[in-house]
Structure formats: structure tokens, C-alpha cells
Amino acid sequence: MNEETKQKIEQQLRDNPVLLYMKGSPDFPMCGFSAQTVAALRAVEAEFAHVNILEEPDLREALKAYSNWPTYPQLYINGELVGGCDIAVEMYNSGELKKMVAAND
């Protein structure tokens, strides 16, 4: 991964306490898993930023290596990978997602 892309990822993670790397945008998700993750975040009234990885092919590959996570979406809270769709939905169901997002206000 080139240094510039890595710095870009680190900057995005610093700037956005809740950040979703997804396919498409929250209003026009291009994948069912991204859509479900957005729905979970909206259900807990999270303020979140997003990056559409379909528009950023370099970043799309680089982030997989950076996080050692092979699929999208990828949800980050306070710079840490929380997980993909299954984990976000699981944490929504357990109430943990709401707590994490609230702790972040």
C-alpha cells in the first residue's frame, strides 16, 4: 500500500469518529450489506460519515490490507474497526451499538 493512501485512511479515521466505508452512499447503497449497516446506524441515531469505496478503487484495496478485513462494509468507531454488517447488526440487537455511538457524542 502506498504511503499516501495509508495517510489518507488514517486522516479519515481521525476526522470521523463514526465512519462507514461502504458501497454507494447511505441514501443510495449499492449493496444489501451496506444498506443493512446504514439502517442499524440510523436506528441508533448515529451521526456518521461515509466513504463510497466504489468511487475510490485504490483506497478500496488498501483498506482491506490496512484493516486485515476482506469485505465491505467496514464500520469504524474512534479509529477502530468494529466489523462488517453481521457484527453491526448483532451489536444493534444487543444494544451495544447504541452505547458505543452514545459514548461518542
Partner: peptide, 10 residues
Amino acid sequence: PPLGRHRMVY
């Protein structure tokens, strides 16, 4: 945790 379990599967 779930993250670790998914990493093991991957």
C-alpha cells in the same frame, strides 16, 4: 469477540 471470530473465519 465477534470481530476476532470473523477474523478466524476469514
